[in-house]
């Protein structure tokens, strides 16, 4: 399904990204010693205890950990969303394309979002606004970069981009609302939207977790191909190790707000160093023993659930 059509997506490709690259280390995103805490009624809660993470251009990096480990807040700090929450206390350096995010004000951070970095959310259907057409939302995204883009031109461009994510009838989809389309279709739209402006960084927060496994696999493959076409780096947030292994070049394992292990995907999976990584891997459900479980054909408890009792008298065994 995930036909990759490099030709149509490349014209806006990585043209404008190049000039921004003045980081000596070559890292697109560089997070150093990031701390985060929230002030609440019950006091100060620390969420991140000094995270360091870096992503090179075009690199696919996975951030893996259990729920509540701090994956999503890290993504929201990179996007500059959490900085606008008044209860959040953030320290540490986040450098994106050589710019220190903490030195930017809210509107400068906003200018980066949707243009040079974008995000894909868990559930594509609820991430699309139900009262605006796909076309409206898509053209709005395109206008983030080119405000003077005419309506017709924006629609044409959107249709073209939908075509690159294997949507067969873009004109119909553009006129539709998210609730009229399938989850897989919406996910394709979200991927096309996220890459429409050829951002240099894409943050994917457990993409497609709400979809069924087959569709999720298809759309992940599509995303994989699309980011390669656009030369977009990805910060891939997931708890699904199987998917991570397929998708990422590099893995960071996060546990309770700390990075406990990092390295190339291959080496982390082959020889996990930290006990938590091993525990995380052990948590992946596996089919063992070659097929169905080992149970005697005539074991006493095997047939129990199959019986229907004719008489309701207690203690009567059939």
């Amino acid at each position: 399904m995930s036909a990759n059509r490099p030709g149509s997506g490349e014209d806006t490709g990585s043209v404008k990204n190049g000039s921004m690259e003045r980081n000596s280390s070559g890292a697109l995103l560089d997070i150093r010693d990031l701390h985060l805490g929230f002030r609440g009624y019950t006091g100060y809660t620390k969420v991140l205890h000094g995270i360091s993470l870096s992503i090179n251009r075009g690199q696919r990096v996975a951030l893996v950990g259990e729920s509540g480990s701090g994956k999503s807040v890290t993504a929201r700090i990179v996007l500059g969303l959490l900085q606008e929450t008044r209860t959040a206390r953030i320290t540490g350096d986040v450098e994106f394309q050589g710019n220190d995010m903490s030195s930017l004000n809210a509107s400068q951070r906003r200018a980066l979002r949707g243009t040079r970095m974008s995000m894909i959310f868990q559930d594509p259907t609820s991430a699309l606004n139900p009262v605006f057409t796909i076309g409206y939302q898509f053209t709005e995204v395109l206008r983030r970069v080119d405000e003077k883009l005419s309506k017709e031109a924006a629609y044409l461009r959107a249709a073209e981009l939908l075509h690159t994510v294997s949507i067969p009838d873009p004109a119909r989809v553009l006129d539709a609302y998210s609730f009229q389309l399938s989850g897989g279709m919406n996910q394709r739209i979200i991927i096309a939207m996220a890459l429409a402006n050829s951002p240099s960084l894409l943050i994917a927060d457990e993409p497609g977790t709400a979809l069924d496994v087959t569709v999720q696999a298809q759309t992940l493959q599509l995303m994989h191909d699309m980011v390669a076409t656009h030369n977009t780096a990805v910060l891939f947030i997931s708890h699904n190790l199987g998917v991570v292994r397929e998708f990422a070049d590099r893995v960071y394992v996060i546990y309770r707000g700390r990075i406990v292990e990092e390295g190339a995907t291959q080496s982390v999976f082959e020889s996990p160093g930290h006990a938590y990584t091993r525990a995380l891997m052990a948590a992946v459900p596996r089919v063992t023993g070659g097929g169905i479980p080992d149970i005697d054909d005539e074991s006493a408890d095997f047939h129990d659930p199959c019986f229907t009792h004719d008489s309701p008298i207690a203690g009567t065994e059939s």
Partner: peptide, 13 residues
């Protein structure tokens, strides 16, 4: 709703 966070993630005013 997620679509508002999405709008924020796309940097709308």
């Amino acid at each position: 709703k997620p679509y508002i966070e999405m709008a924020q993630a796309y940097g709308y005013a």
